[in-house]
């Protein structure tokens, strides 16, 4: 199969420098509002700063994948002598709690790296964090052509299994419409 080039975007989090200001949450939620910047609501942000201030935990995480069911979350972490549940630092949008779930619609939120047209120079959270906690990088990677299609197919099949074909088609149409609008 032929090779093709793809831009991979990453954000490295230097959590030692985080001051817990949550400016990143404000910026992300404002950017993703419709119309843009019309609303601020950190509960709609795709980045969340986990803070236990006295315990020196200042830990930004990005909204990760949606999971249908909560995992057991039985494991725990001990940091600086204090115990935390596995869930405390988890980035999944998961039905057992509200994190990374839109407070109105209940739909999962996911960091989309501020994908937009025309593309931004930097994601919004990175741009607002002037203390260099969030370090943005783009690099080119070679990937097998066709592979993405394949992975989309797997995803769509899973959706069809879960919701039925009609539901999926209707949703795709809705998304298309809202994009046009």
């Amino acid at each position: 199969m032929a090779k093709m080039k793809k831009i991979v975007k990453t954000i490295t989090v230097d959590a030692d420098r985080c001051n817990g200001c949550r400016a990143c949450e404000v910026a992300c939620s404002a950017f993703h509002a419709t119309p843009k910047y019309s609303i601020v609501n950190p509960a709609r942000s795709r980045i969340k700063v986990i803070t236990y201030r006295l315990d020196d935990i200042f830990f930004p995480i990005f909204a990760g994948a949606y999971t249908k069911a909560g995992c057991e979350g039985r494991d725990s972490y001990i940091i600086d002598g204090k115990e935390y549940r596995e869930c405390d630092f988890c980035r999944a949008s998961c039905p057992t709690r509200n994190r990374f779930t839109d407070p109105d619609s209940g739909l999962p939120l996911r960091c989309d790296m501020c994908e937009s047209d025309p593309p931004l120079e930097k994601p919004k959270c990175v741009e607002v964090c002037i203390n260099d906690v969030l370090i943005y990088e783009e690099r080119e990677e070679e990937v097998e052509e066709g592979e993405p299609i394949e992975s989309i197919e797997i995803g769509v099949k899973a959706l069809v299994d879960k919701h039925g074909l009609n539901e999926v088609i209707e949703t795709v149409e809705r998304v298309q419409l809202s994009k046009k609008a």
């Binding site: 001051n19 201030r53 315990d55 002037i130 203390n131």
Partner: peptide, 23 residues
Amino acid sequence: RFISCFNCPQQCGTLISFQDVPR
């Protein structure tokens, strides 16, 4: 650690951890 108030980059606050004194 230097810490900030909500939505401000200027981190004028500090977490104090001194010997046996609670933080």
